[in-house]
Simulated assay, not measured.
Amino acid sequence: MTKAKQPTILVVNDDGITAPGIKALMHTMKEIGRVVVVAPDSPQSGMGHAITIGKPLRLDEVDIYEGIEMYRCSGTPVDCVKLAVTKVFNGVKPDLCVSGINHGLNNSINVLYSGTMSAAVEGAIESIPSIGFSLDDYSMQADFEPCQKFVKEIAQQVLAHGLPAGTVLNVNFPAGNKIKGVKICRQANAKWAEEFDMRMDPYKRPYYWLTGVFQNNDQGQDTDVWALEHNYASIVPVQFDMTAHHAIPVLNTWLFNV
Rank of each mutant, 00 (worst) to 15 (best):
K5C: 08
T28A: 15
N216T: 12
A4Y: 01
V158R: 01
S114A: 13
A193K: 12
H27W: 07
H245R: 15
I9R: 00
M70V: 10
V37S: 02
G21Q: 02
I68V: 15
V121L: 11
L96C: 11
S42W: 01
I125E: 12
G212Y: 09
D222A: 07
L83Q: 11
T116V: 11
P146R: 05
T253A: 08
Q219A: 13
T2N: 03
V92R: 11
G132I: 00
I248R: 09
A188S: 14
D222M: 07
G115L: 04
T243I: 13
S45G: 13
T167D: 01
I22W: 01
A190Q: 07
D224Q: 06
L10K: 01
L25N: 03
M242V: 13
V121W: 00
I109E: 14
V111N: 04
Q239F: 09
P206I: 08
M242D: 07
T86F: 10
D14A: 14
S114D: 04
A190C: 08
P56R: 02
P40W: 03
D136V: 07
N170Y: 01
E69C: 13
W226T: 00
D14L: 03
Q157G: 10
E122M: 13
T76S: 11
L163C: 06
T28W: 05
A175E: 08
Q148K: 11
Q157A: 14
N257T: 15
R186C: 05
Y113R: 09
P7E: 11
T52Q: 03
A227F: 00
I68Q: 03
R34D: 12
F240E: 00
G75T: 06
P7V: 11
E61Y: 05
